[in-house]
């Protein structure tokens, strides 16, 4: 240890406020960037999943009617 006590560690001989401000801002911004990126990824993934799930369900629920060819009688009058 470069310091004799915990309070000396916090005070850093008067430079404490400067050093700790820097470390706090650094940690907050870096953690914020990590969480923001992770959240955005999750949201994007869910959006993709929802739209593909919907499409898959739509496909199962209503199979398209097969094309039919029936003779239509139309009067020639």
């Amino acid at each position: 240890m470069a310091f004799e006590s915990f309070s000396a560690f916090l005070a850093m001989e008067g430079h404490g406020p400067y050093v700790w401000t820097c470390y706090a801002v650094f940690v907050v911004l870096l953690a914020g960037m990590v969480f923001w990126s992770a959240k955005r990824h999750q949201a994007t993934y869910r959006m993709c999943k929802r739209s593909h799930d919907q499409q898959a369900r739509k496909g199962q629920a209503k199979p398209k009617a097969a094309a039919t060819f029936t003779r239509v009688e139309i009067s020639q009058d």
Partner: peptide
Amino acid sequence: GLVWGLAFAPKDYLQGNSYRIIFIHVPS
């Protein structure tokens, strides 16, 4: 790196303890 730099590295003879900011300033 940060714990080592904050608590264990010796202090700078000229700048005192304020130099410990280097451990985040230079990497950034």
